[in-house]
């Protein structure tokens, strides 16, 4: 009796792992194949049957694309855009969310209604008008012009509000007893309490800024492009040179995967806090 139960458990565990691995191949396979393409310079990926696993390893593609494309410049552009985007997005969204969570003031419901309505109203036509706005502000071909339109998202404001509402009221009261200003309470007492939410917003904003390619193409000149825009440019210009494009893609993808792996442990906590509502 006991033995059959044990055997059953082992078999079901085995099936779980088989399923997990099948899904992992489905989700990761294309990336692994990309790496394998990038490591085989001169290999034609459209040969049939195609080479799926690398038969030899050579980093020439990386060296060539790095030199030819001036990748360091694009990485630097992306880093600045992402840094500006993430920092100010967290700052402004958390500032906006704080009174909505803590205070009862006149107009609070109106602000709420406005915020919710942005979730209903789509921004399909927004691109043209935002371009005109950025243009009239003299911000064409600046990084500020790239990050400004997407700095405050309603999603982030709601996520922070939810997190602030979870903080016990005594903490704010104790800050007040010590005579701290509201801003100091927010910065020194409240913000450290909502680290998981900050991690989630940080990760989402990192993703959005690091990966954005369309708006930068509209606003910036080629030499100021971030990686994703440069990559779509590279893909259009050198579509025959698979190795280069593969290497460039790998270079552009690795940093964000690392950031994700580092923030991952906060991620679940933050997500469940955000969804519960």
């Amino acid at each position: 009796m006991k033995n059959t139960n044990k055997a059953k458990k082992i078999i079901s565990k085995f099936f779980v792992y088989v399923l997990l691995i099948i899904f992992a191949i489905f989700m990761m396979g294309p990336f692994l194949w990309l790496i394998s393409v990038s490591l085989m310079p001169g290999k034609n990926i459209f040969a049939f049957p195609p080479a799926i696993l690398p038969t030899f390893i050579d980093f020439r593609n990386y060296l060539e694309v790095w030199e030819y494309m001036d990748f360091l410049k694009y990485i630097w552009n992306t880093v600045i855009i992402t840094f500006l985007g993430v920092t100010f997005s967290i700052l402004f969204s958390a500032l906006t969310a704080y009174p909505l969570a803590i205070f009862k003031f006149k107009g609070r419901n109106l602000v709420f209604l406005l915020l919710v309505s942005t979730m209903i109203i789509p921004a399909a036509a927004g691109l043209v008008v935002n371009y005109l706005t950025i243009n009239s502000m003299g911000l064409i071909n600046t990084f500020t012009g790239v990050v400004l339109p997407t700095l405050v998202s309603v999603f982030n404001v709601f996520l922070f509000r939810q997190a602030f509402m979870g903080i016990p009221t005594d903490i704010r009261d104790s800050g007040k007893m010590d005579g701290a200003s509201e801003f100091r309470i927010w910065a020194q007492l409240m913000m450290p309490m909502i680290k998981p939410a900050v991690a989630v917003v940080g990760l989402f904003e990192f993703m959005a800024n690091w990966n954005s390619f369309l708006w930068p193409i509209i606003v910036l000149n080629t030499e100021k492009y971030p990686l994703a825009s440069a990559l779509s440019f590279l893909n259009g210009q050198f579509s025959y040179n698979f190795g280069w494009i593969a290497a460039g893609t790998v270079i552009s993808v690795l940093p964000i995967i690392f950031v994700f792996l580092f923030t991952q442990k906060y991620y679940m906590e933050g997500i469940s806090g955000a969804v519960k509502g």
Binding site: P30, T249, V253, I257
Partner: peptide, 16 residues
């Protein structure tokens, strides 16, 4: 592993 396609850019995914 299942989350990695989410964090990568659509440009990269589209190329692959």
């Amino acid at each position: 592993a299942y989350y990695i396609p989410v964090v990568t850019s659509m440009v990269a995914v589209a190329i692959i």
